[in-house]
Design a protein around this nucleic acid. Structure first.
Lengths: 352, 352
DNA sequence: TACCTTTACGGGCACGTGCCCGTAATCCTC
DNA sequence: GAGGATTACGGGCACGTGCCCGTAAAGGTA
């Protein structure tokens, strides 16, 4: 008992309403120039028909190209983590291009707050219709969000979230739960009398991500009455020498550390230290599928890596913008990625 | 130095070749009615321009609707595993529908070889342009593949592969490696003197999948000189009573089983047995994110589940057909899914 | 009433491709 | 060399929507 087909589209609406397709078009795009009466009639018919516009024809006919921006950290010597989201963004771009969508990518140095702010200015100058952004610096991102709101421009956060803002969508990990998983893996075969070491290596002090992860990590210990003592250390320099110096000191003070948890992708630096100091019996867990980390996974120095599908994050983030701007379909506000566990045995199939 | 733009598409090719768009069209779809000379000329221009057809316009202009079939097992009382690939297929369908692609789904009972064969007949009667199939029965699938070859109809395998056949693509797990990962997880905290039990619960005897998994499982033990003794059991009935009977016997004979590995999604039956017989100290690993299994994951009876993103398999399988038939783009022949590790702590974010 | 402005709507071309139909040119046959 | 068959190609409409432009009708001002 389908009431569809026979004739469809704008033409059919126009026929039923006794108007021209142009008038229907005006209603569909709520432009001016239609009397309230006919507008109501047409809207009723649209609703009754459950009219779905043909995106093919729409995109073909419209010469207006939709342009999206993506603002993410550059790949640096320190880490090639952001190569993965970039690849996902490019994948999305390739899919969308044929539908008249253009993507422009803006990069910034993760250690340079000003570069971030400047790229934001460039983005606004570009007059884009939507933007994907890694909200790496909190204050700057807040200003950015305010300006977006003023311009009614949708923006999507990936990799980390700033919850109060009105982003179209957040796509990334649930950091707290991610730390929780880390604790589970770390303690899975750990003897009760061994200590656990949490290591945070980061130049930035206001690290919201880190706090969430550690919070989740500790929550696991509480929930499961895990007996192990937790030691923690913050290291504010990222070079190997500094890290090694700090770690030497910590391991000197605590002879019975059985496992270490690094709260970000710099786990390879710790792995290097453990290897060099012949401490590979210490279980080691950290974040992200970057090539240095995978190397230590292969060597059995790193036991597990926790990953959040950065490639997919980039892809889905762009697609969320596409959904709203082109398809005009609703988008999930919170989009938590799976917490993937990568080991020596399964990494070759991992799709970052 | 881009040589693109200005004018593009079929019209530009026609202009350069001094022919009409109709002739260009004939060449593009290698239809008859073009002399070798002009054909060569047009092809040269196409190559030079790196011409990419506008799929929007193509699909819009072509009234020919492409229809795809999917042949997968029905959701049964035994398992709702196939709900996930089905969801992925429907997701793909929703995306493709607006581009003029229709999808029809054929289901069969996993325990009924004849139903499988009959549905294959239905598929061929339907005159589809491509098909996604779960090759559950080997002999029937071989006949199917031969008929597809005769009709030049592309087919994609998901979830399990039959390597010799010329499928357009295989999308599913690398079973051997998957067993390998299972062994790693199972032995990760296992004491050396404990035995390991491999359990295969399946009515079908010719279980190619099972053999691959067990092979990988044992390979891990070899590669790592794992000291544990391996015990194995085949159970040909799938109901709880039968499984419990067999397991009672095995556990009676082997007092020191420390871990059990179930080679398919029926791990929940084993979990039920372990729980009822107060043997939850035995580590348990099995396959698939089905709701019964997740329940035992929550209860700490199952330690890990290994999953292969069945939803994605369905989605990608359909998309592979779409790529060849609509976009006319190449498709990867082997498409191994990640080997995901699901635990009590991360299952809530798992995207099956 | 004459003239101008605003509102409400219709006609019709364009987007790039698919494909039907018509026809000039060439080939074949006796 | 007349007639028919085949080959090679062009013209042009259609797909569903966007949007420019033109215009009749309504309203406003003197």
């Amino acid at each position: 008992m389908e009431k569809e087909n026979e004739l469809f589209g704008v033409k059919e609406i126009a026929r039923r309403a006794n108007v021209s397709t142009a008038t229907v078009d005006r209603v569909l795009h709520n432009r001016t120039g239609v009397s309230e009466k006919t507008k109501a009639k047409i809207n009723a018919i649209i609703k009754e028909m459950d009219y779905q516009p043909n995106i093919l024809a729409s995109r073909l006919a419209s010469k207006k190209i939709i342009s999206l921006a993506a603002l993410i950290p550059d790949v640096s010597e320190e880490t090639d983590f952001w190569a993965a989201p970039l690849a996902g963004i490019r994948r999305a771009e390739a899919e969308m291009r044929q539908y008249g969508v253009q993507v422009q990518i803006f990069l910034f140095d993760l250690n340079d707050k000003d570069a971030f702010a400047e790229q934001i200015r460039h983005v606004f100058e570009g007059g884009f219709h939507g933007i994907l952004i890694s909200p790496s610096f909190i204050e700057e991102t807040k200003k950015f969000a305010a300006e977006c709101a003023r311009r009614k421009m949708p923006y999507v956060f990936i990799d980390s979230d700033i919850p109060d803002l009105h982003s179209l969508s957040y796509i990334g990990p649930h950091l707290r739960k991610s730390g929780y998983v880390g604790a589970k893996l770390l303690t899975y075969r750990l003897e009760a009398e061994k200590k656990v070491l949490i290591i945070n290596i980061s130049k930035e002090i206001d690290n919201f991500n880190y706090l969430e992860i550690e919070d989740g990590f500790r929550a696991y210990f509480n929930d499961n009455n895990q007996p192990n003592e937790i030691v923690r250390i913050d290291i504010r320099e990222t070079d190997y020498q500094s890290v090694a110096r700090h770690l030497t000191y910590v391991f000197h003070l605590n002879k019975d550390i059985g496992a270490a948890f690094v709260t970000n992708s710099r786990v390879h630096t710790v792995a290097s230290f453990l290897k060099n100091s012949h401490r590979t019996h210490v279980s080691l867990i950290g974040y992200d599928f970057v090539k240095e980390n995978v190397g230590y996974l292969e060597n059995n120095v790193i036991d597990f890596l926790i990953c959040h599908r950065p490639d997919d994050q980039g892809y889905r983030g762009m697609m969320a913008l596409y959904q709203t701007l082109v398809v005009n379909a609703p988008v999930t506000k919170q989009n938590y990625m799976p917490i993937d566990i990568v080991t020596k045995e399964n990494y070759e199939f991992y799709q970052n």
